Simulated scan of single mutants.
Amino acid sequence: MRILITNDDGIYSRGLRAAVEAVKDLGEVYVVAPLFQRSASGRAMTLHRPLRAKLVDVPGAKIAYGIDGMPTDCVIFALARFTDFDLAISGINLGENLSTEITVSGTASAAIEAATNGIPSIAISLEVSREKYKFGEGSEVDFSIASHFLRKVTRAVLRDGLPEGVDMLNVNVPDDATPETEIAATRLAHRMYRPTVEERIDPKGNPYYWIVGRKCREFEPGTDAYALKVERKVSVTPINIDMTARVDFENLYKLLIL
């Protein structure tokens, strides 16, 4: 089995190293990840300059490259360089990736990119209780339980494959989880954050702006956010990358010609 691992927190993040450690005996592990923190990069690609690649020592990996680009670039590079994989893993990300906002996530987007190439994929994220941890290397965070669940899900997917109609799994692990924490099959919540812009003034009196997110507090039962935030369960959400709405096309056609 050939397993590709990436992580939008970067190739030096402890979450990526924990992912490699969790699955290194389940197949040949190849790592291609950004050299720098690339959170919230979505499916951005680097098209207007060349990419630079650097060999990096990642214990447990057959080979590892750091790329000065985006998570999606890393998957494209890996497929061009090493061809086929049996599974792609993106994570373990610092901070949960929930709701339809996973399209913003570099973690989920890397898994989506792999899935568009027919590779079963897992995006896995660990909830963090303090915002300052989300954009670091994770030196203060314990990844052992998230690694436990990653290994569990990986073994199941390598053994049985994904269910028909499922292209990837989006997994979120509570920060207080134990090996006995229940797993919940969920759907995506509508949204996790409500972005806004804060205006501030620099020392010269000029305004500048930060995009910030206000967390939603109420979630519908059955969603990933409800399972993680309310029930304190590991949420596993099946994702299909065909975003076509399941509607009667004839009715849509009639609407458009009136």
Rank of each mutant, 00 (worst) to 15 (best):
L51V: 03
T103S: 13
D160F: 10
C216Q: 08
A22G: 12
V31A: 03
V153R: 01
R246H: 04
F77H: 14
P203R: 06
Y193E: 02
V75P: 02
T237S: 14
R159M: 08
I257G: 00
C216S: 06
G165Q: 14
L228E: 07
G222P: 05
A61K: 02
K54V: 13
Y209D: 07
K215P: 14
I92F: 01
E220C: 06
L252D: 06
D167K: 09
F149V: 06
P59W: 05
L126M: 12
V212Q: 09
T83I: 01
D224K: 05
P207Q: 10
V153M: 15
T244L: 15
T244P: 00
K54Y: 06
T196N: 02
E182L: 11
A18F: 12
Y30D: 00
E180A: 13
A177C: 02
R17A: 07
S235Q: 09
A114L: 05
R52D: 09
L258W: 01
S99M: 10
K134R: 15
A22E: 03
S147Q: 11
K204D: 09
M192F: 08
P195G: 04
V212Y: 07
K134M: 14
S147T: 12
P59I: 05
T223C: 00
Y226W: 12
I3G: 02
L26W: 14
E131N: 15
A189W: 00
R2F: 00
M168P: 11
L150E: 12
I102R: 04
L158G: 02
N117W: 14
I89Q: 02
F219K: 01
I89L: 04
Y30E: 02
S13Q: 08
Y133V: 06
K54H: 13
S105P: 02
D248A: 05
K233Y: 05
E137N: 13
R214D: 13
N240C: 10
L150A: 11
I67Y: 06
A245C: 02
E182N: 01
A156M: 03
K152W: 07
